[in-house]
């Protein structure tokens, strides 16, 4: 029983990280209408920048602060230079995100990959406390706090601010929103700026556990898509529930069945959700008038 509880706790911690990546996917989907395959590698690349700053003598927290500013700029540049030019429909933009995914991995290998993987120091305190024989890590507890702040902040933004309302309007009715004076491209730029910062946050939380290397996010990305589907591609809060479900179930499957079925179990949950609740656990049906 102790093993099961420890695995569930570990699965929740892993699931929160999956959920954060899924959160960015859903956020960009809600605000720009396109799911971005490259978000994981955007975070990976930004984390390498922080690592290089730290390796060259900057303190870890100052390097993270500088990295956050760079990430905001990086997100804006990605939107302005890669995704926005030449228009194109959703399929076109989706393919560009795939290309960006591959390009960032290749660039990381070229610029930073010589001696990878790297041991990345943790911004959060190490160690933990035992509750009933189960180790609760301080880093995991703080991650829960970070997640709550992020979700609360974004939900509040979408519900009670003009900016959030404009985001929703552009996502649901881009042409109508533009006609009403909403500057869609400005909003998309802001969305990518926020996404860039969030992606770095994931990288900074993940790298101490996964080690920093160019493919650090790849195993998580698939789980993140599954979490977004399970939670619902229109529900920001649902991504974390989806992530926790994926994290706990896959860890239990690994422990009691075998690691051969870890990925299969995540995909099975995704398919089951699509079959039973096509819009996800917390998603809403998208209605279009023809």
């Amino acid at each position: 029983m102790g093993l099961a509880i420890s695995v569930i706790v570990s699965g929740i911690a892993f699931g929160l990280l999956i959920g954060m990546l899924a959160f960015i996917l859903v956020f960009l989907y809600k605000t720009t209408g396109v799911a971005n395959f490259a978000v994981g590698n955007i975070g990976m690349f930004e984390t390498f920048i922080v690592y290089e700053l730290w390796k060259n003598g900057m303190g870890l927290w100052p390097a993270a602060g500088v990295g956050l500013v760079c990430s905001a700029v990086f997100g804006v540049l990605i939107y302005q230079l890669v995704l926005r030019p030449f228009g194109g429909n959703q399929a076109n933009t989706l393919v560009r995100t795939v290309a960006l995914f591959l390009l960032l991995a290749a660039m990381a290998d070229v610029f930073f990959g010589q001696d990878q993987p790297y041991h990345f120091p943790s911004l959060l305190p190490t160690g933990g406390t035992k509750v009933g024989g189960v180790l609760l890590r301080w880093s995991d507890l703080i991650t829960v706090g970070i997640v709550l702040v992020i979700v609360t902040g974004f939900v509040a933004m979408f519900r009670w601010t003009r900016l959030g309302l404009q985001f929703l309007a552009v996502a649901q009715r881009p042409e109508t929103a533009r006609l009403l004076g909403v500057r869609a491209q400005r909003l998309s730029t802001i969305a990518y700026m926020l996404a860039g910062c969030l992606a770095l946050l994931i990288g900074l939380l993940l790298a101490p556990k996964q080690l920093l290397f160019s493919q650090m996010m790849n195993p998580i990305l698939l789980f993140a898509f599954a979490a977004a589907v399970v939670g619902g591609f229109t529900s920001l809060g649902g991504t974390f529930v989806g992530g926790i479900i994926i994290g706990v179930v896959t860890d239990l499957v690994t422990t009691y069945v075998g690691s051969d079925l870890t990925l299969a179990s995540a995909l099975a949950i995704m398919l089951l959700t699509l079959a039973v609740r096509p819009n996800g656990l917390f998603g809403t049906a998208q209605v279009r008038r023809l």
Binding site: G2, L3, S6, V7, S10, G11, F14, Q210, Q215, N218, P219, I220, F223, G247, T250, D251, L252, T254, T255, G258, S259, D260, T262, L263
Partner: peptide, 19 residues
């Protein structure tokens, strides 16, 4: 204890071995 290449989370394997 087996894991495929590139496994995302080794915590379950560690917890099993730790027991």
């Amino acid at each position: 204890y087996k894991a495929p290449p590139g496994t995302a989370d080794f915590a379950p394997d560690v917890l099993k071995i730790k027991q």
